[in-house]
Simulated scan of single mutants.
Amino acid sequence: MLENLYKQIVMDHYKNPRNKGKLEGEGSIQFPYKNPTCGDVMVLYMTVDDNQKIKDVKFEGEGCSISMASCSMMTDLVKGKTFEEAQRLIGLFNGMIKNGELPEDEDELGDALALSGIHKLRARHNCSLLGWNGLERAMKQHAH
């Protein structure tokens, strides 16, 4: 039953992605990222304030339902968060996908919790991590 609900959440994010599109204008960051194992691609767009808070975030991309749904979930979760808060979410998501660890407060990952079953599918780990890895690299690049 729960697995069915999770599938519906993933498909909803795939078919109706949140924050899809470009951010243009002064101060916007554009960061392309490609999954080397399957060729899924995305471009992350962010505007960040002086306190390293993600004011807005969007993405464009092409890939499987898991990678695109995960990008959608990630942008929803990190909008309005500081780099530090976003980094914590990246850590929680990585722990869930790579080690099967569910966060103590499951609400923290929101809809991204629907991807918890991916832990058992090693071949799909990189799909689910596409947007999160891209975000982490974009933040590191911007922080310097």
Score class of each variant (00 low, 15 high):
8 Q>N: 11
54 I>C: 00
73 M>T: 07
85 E>A: 07
95 G>K: 04
20 K>N: 07
43 V>T: 14
105 D>K: 05
27 G>V: 02
122 R>N: 01
130 L>F: 00
113 L>G: 13
137 R>P: 03
100 G>F: 12
21 G>E: 06
44 L>K: 15
17 P>E: 04
135 L>K: 15
143 A>Q: 15
1 M>G: 06
21 G>W: 00
63 G>F: 10
70 S>N: 03
11 M>C: 11
142 H>Y: 14
4 N>P: 02
124 R>Y: 04
75 T>K: 09
88 R>T: 09
9 I>P: 05
5 L>T: 08
9 I>V: 14
102 L>T: 03
124 R>H: 01
121 L>A: 11
58 K>W: 07
17 P>C: 05
124 R>M: 00
64 C>I: 10
89 L>D: 13
90 I>W: 05
5 L>D: 02
120 K>A: 11
73 M>E: 12
98 K>Y: 12
61 G>K: 00
120 K>P: 06
104 E>P: 15
113 L>E: 06
66 I>Q: 01
128 S>D: 07
80 G>A: 06
96 M>H: 12
47 T>M: 03
111 D>S: 11
49 D>C: 08
140 K>M: 13
98 K>T: 11
117 G>F: 05
69 A>Q: 14
81 K>N: 07
20 K>Q: 07
96 M>P: 15
55 K>V: 15
92 L>Y: 05
31 F>S: 07
40 D>C: 08
123 A>S: 15
32 P>N: 00
93 F>K: 14
114 A>N: 00
35 N>C: 11
76 D>L: 10
93 F>R: 15
136 E>P: 01
1 M>V: 01
38 C>P: 07
25 G>N: 05
6 Y>V: 06
114 A>K: 00
70 S>H: 06
83 F>Q: 04
91 G>Y: 13
75 T>D: 11
91 G>S: 13
129 L>N: 01
81 K>A: 03
105 D>N: 12
136 E>I: 09
96 M>A: 12
77 L>C: 04
38 C>H: 01
130 L>A: 03
46 M>Q: 11
12 D>T: 02
88 R>P: 04
98 K>D: 11
33 Y>A: 02
83 F>H: 07
62 E>Q: 02
123 A>M: 15
74 M>K: 13
44 L>V: 15
27 G>P: 14
68 M>R: 02
58 K>Q: 06
12 D>W: 04
96 M>T: 10
55 K>Y: 04
68 M>A: 03
